[in-house]
């Protein structure tokens, strides 16, 4: 079985198990404020790491290329409170323009 299939099945099974567990265990088990606090920080850390790795690396090497400019435009779009699809498309169009015209 390919890496992709393991990824699809593994992620889906665990994602559902996590959701279902939440609906099935007594609330007091995880209501500790520290657990809640850590849970709020996890997406911030992992998503920020994903932004960095997907923008500035390629195959275990650090790289500065068209993606960085695309990300810069995405930041500007977010500063102007642009909706999500506008953010993604403006980044994609910018990086494509750099690849084709520079």
């Amino acid at each position: 079985m390919s890496v992709m299939w393991w990824g699809v099945i593994g992620t889906s099974v665990i994602a559902f198990a996590l959701k279902f567990t939440g609906h099935s265990i007594p609330a007091r088990w995880l209501s500790h404020p520290k657990v809640q606090a850590i849970n709020l920080q996890i997406p911030i850390a992992l998503l920020s790491a994903l932004v960095a790795v997907q923008t500035f690396t390629s195959k275990s090497k650090l790289e500065l290329d068209h993606r960085a400019l695309g990300l810069g435009v995405a930041i500007v779009a977010l500063l102007f409170r642009a909706p999500f699809p506008v953010v993604v498309i403006s980044a994609a169009v910018t990086s494509a323009a750099v690849v084709h015209f520079l």
């Binding site: 695309g70 995405a74 953010v87 910018t94 990086s95």
Partner: peptide, 9 residues
């Protein structure tokens, strides 16, 4: 750049 922009969003 669309993928990191999506994560950023």
């Amino acid at each position: 750049a669309a993928v990191p922009a999506a994560f950023l969003g």
